[in-house]
Design a protein around this nucleic acid. Structure first.
Lengths: 160, 160
DNA sequence: TCGCATATTTCTATCATCGAAACAAATGGT
DNA sequence: ACCATTTGTTTCGATGATAGAAATATGCGA
């Protein structure tokens, strides 16, 4: 059993996609464990880092929304990250209720260690792809992302 | 800033991949929440289901290894799943220490509800792909999986 | 049969998360 | 200018998933 559904069938692509997600998750999990962090902490760190890179530093409540976490759980995450020296909290001087999350160099270096080896290995794996193939793949990935978001949205709001 | 790194650059593909993983995770999380289950329970269910479909039913210890979970945590997962009516435990009559995990129809139906809508939406998103494009994508996904596994393995065993 | 290995469960402790309440600061109506 | 309300964050208390160690049960080899 294999030839009537192989060679790029929907089933095969879905199976590969699922495997890739599983492996990526496992990688993140092991990296976190190697650095004494949980998935949530790593997720938080990447979200905060992305925001900082976009020039839009985050507040705890924005982080809570991004991570689908309660406000109190977010405080706990930030306490852990701050204790580990990955970031510090700055009060916004114009609105002193707000806190701005500032990454420490520490965390930037950690991010490097996280993404660089994976990025290098992926780049090597993709080295033989032509420009045309890359466009096809990008289109595939974008379409898959959209499809996933659509299904999820429908799950939340089954009634129109 | 966008055209010198767009159009299928490594960076763009990596970014899309990361987004896809995030969205997939989020989907799984919301589906689980909608059915009163956690990520771990869902993961366990899919692993057990895959094994059953391969004709190789699992034992708790195999499940523990597959999920990177302690034996006791695995017992707890199985207790939850059994209480919810998703599976039952069968003692292996030849080696009565062993337990065989048997899926209930209940869980199969849940699996259907989980994968069918997503599968349908993905299939629609991929409907316009040619056979040649599908082969390219399958190759890309397989190469990416391998690369991720390689990096993870190296992380565990940095010394040769 | 006796001792050791294996499979699973039970027991106890820890820690991430949640919900509610507290606290602090800003905003708006009067 | 004052007080009520709203907003942002943290603290407190409780719940529950998970880990580690010990307990239980079974199989296997000397």
């Amino acid at each position: 059993m294999a030839q009537d559904q192989d060679q790029g069938s929907d089933a095969e692509l879905a199976q590969l996609l699922r495997q890739l997600v599983v492996e990526t998750d496992r990688f993140a999990e092991m990296f976190g464990a190697a650095h004494g962090m949980h998935r949530t902490d790593l997720n938080a760190l990447t979200v905060i880092m992305d925001a900082a890179r976009r020039g839009a530093p985050m507040s705890p409540s924005q982080l809570a929304a991004a991570l689908h976490l309660s406000a109190s759980a977010t405080t706990a995450v930030l306490d852990r990250l701050e204790a580990a020296g990955h970031l510090h909290r700055d009060r916004d001087p114009t609105d002193r209720r707000r806190v701005e999350l500032v990454m420490a160099d520490h965390a930037m270096q950690l991010g490097q260690r996280f993404f660089t080896p994976l990025g290098a290995e992926l780049a090597e794996a993709w080295a033989t792809l032509t420009a045309r193939e890359r466009r096809t793949i990008a289109r595939f990935l974008a379409a898959s992302i959209d499809a996933t978001v659509r299904v999820r949205t429908r799950l939340v709001q089954p009634r129109p």
